[in-house]
Simulated scan of single mutants.
Amino acid sequence: MRRKYVRALSTAALATVMVAAAGCQDSGSEGGEAAECGGKIAIFGAFSGDNAGLVLPSLNGAELAVKQHNEANADCQVTLQRFDTQGDPAVATPFANQIAGDQSFLGVIGGHFSGETDATMPIYEAAGLAMISPSATRLDLTSKGNKSFFRVVGHDGTQAAAVATYMKAQNAQRVFAVDDGSAYGAGITAELGTALGPLMAGTDKIQERQAQFDATISKIKAANADYVFYGGYVREAAPLVRQMRSAGVTAKFVGPDGLYDPAFAEGAAGGAEGAIITCPCIPADKAGGSFTEDYQAEYGIAPGSYGGEGFDGAQIYLDAFKDGKQTRADILAFVKAYDKQGVSKYIKFAENGDVDPSRVVIWAYEIKGTAITPLQELKLN
């Protein structure tokens, strides 16, 4: 399954190479003078590395939107340039400085992970660049007063509340939470603890790239947990759950959208069977319009995590270009006022940059073999 993602990425790269440069002319302007239409957008995230499977569907969705736009608008061409951060804030920051300093970039899609997003937000704000994230969910990203950051997904407070409601409905008695200490993992785990209250039986933290989890597993056993929640990403989650099962731990394993990656089940070698993954991203068959069919035709695989959200992030900019916006300031104002149905949800932003909370949807998915299968939509309270 990983090979399919790589193949999809290669196909998407060809689509990017084929797009034309910015600044095409529209001969239909008033007075017969040519009016500029089109422009250049940057997209950044973990397009390679251990956790890339979570991000590639979003990249593909954005590139599909741009390709379709360019095919339908010969006089309004758009270029989408990718920057591979591998999800590392230290890599994302110099890219952000490069993008901000290049006046040909009129908007940014990303970050995809919360850490790289937090690190680069001030750079883009200072440059007057709109920044639309398809998947950065940490709650406090929209409480920092940033005036150029927007996200098309619900935040971790909403997701954690939905997870807590789900666990209570499943009659969970003792929940043990583990997180990786990342901006994302620690944040959503803390939110879950608040939502669960006395049902939280214990917590532990692991290290990035940790490979052995004996100490954590001993704590889980001592807590007699019937549910284990893991806040973090695939790289550590897969060996953790595999070792849990080898050690005889039968507690139900639950993780948020950071685990929505085929590599999780593959790396767990059967240990992830029946695990629950939650995500503020919709199943492929719930996407609007012909998005799912178009994505399948383009990449030979159904859209995974945040494919529709990546498409929507790009579409906002495409709509801005079609509306004649040609400066960073005008595009930023357009994004702030955006009010339109997308393929993932209706998109309208609150003053702080969060998508309208009444439109947020959280789904639970179940691991069956190596497939991530939609299970049910979760209640938000």
Rank of each mutant, 00 (worst) to 15 (best):
E366V: 08
A13F: 12
I206N: 01
A284F: 07
G353E: 04
L141N: 09
A22K: 03
V249R: 10
Q170R: 12
F44T: 01
D156Q: 10
S29H: 14
L106G: 01
G128F: 12
V361D: 14
I132V: 15
E63T: 11
A238E: 08
Y306W: 14
T11K: 13
E298Q: 13
K144E: 15
S344K: 04
R242F: 11
K252Y: 09
K340Q: 14
Q243M: 06
Y230F: 15
G274E: 07
G87L: 02
Q25P: 02
K379Y: 01
V178N: 00
F47A: 09
V234E: 04
E30T: 15
G308T: 12
N73I: 03
A35Q: 14
A251G: 06
V108D: 02
D354I: 09
D156M: 06
A90P: 09
L375R: 15
F213L: 05
T250E: 15
A130M: 07
L141G: 03
S48D: 10
G267S: 13
D180L: 07
P303R: 11
K368Y: 00
Q173P: 03
I123G: 06
H155E: 15
L14I: 04
G193E: 11
D319K: 12
G128E: 12
I347T: 06
S218F: 10
K219E: 13
G342N: 01
L80H: 03
F264R: 02
Y230R: 02
A251V: 08
K252D: 10
K252G: 14
R245E: 10
P94F: 11
G369H: 06
V153W: 08
I43T: 05
P303Q: 11
M121D: 08
Q296P: 05
F349A: 03
Y295H: 06
E298A: 15
A302D: 13
V78D: 00
A237R: 03
A225E: 04
A100N: 02
A320Y: 08
A275P: 06
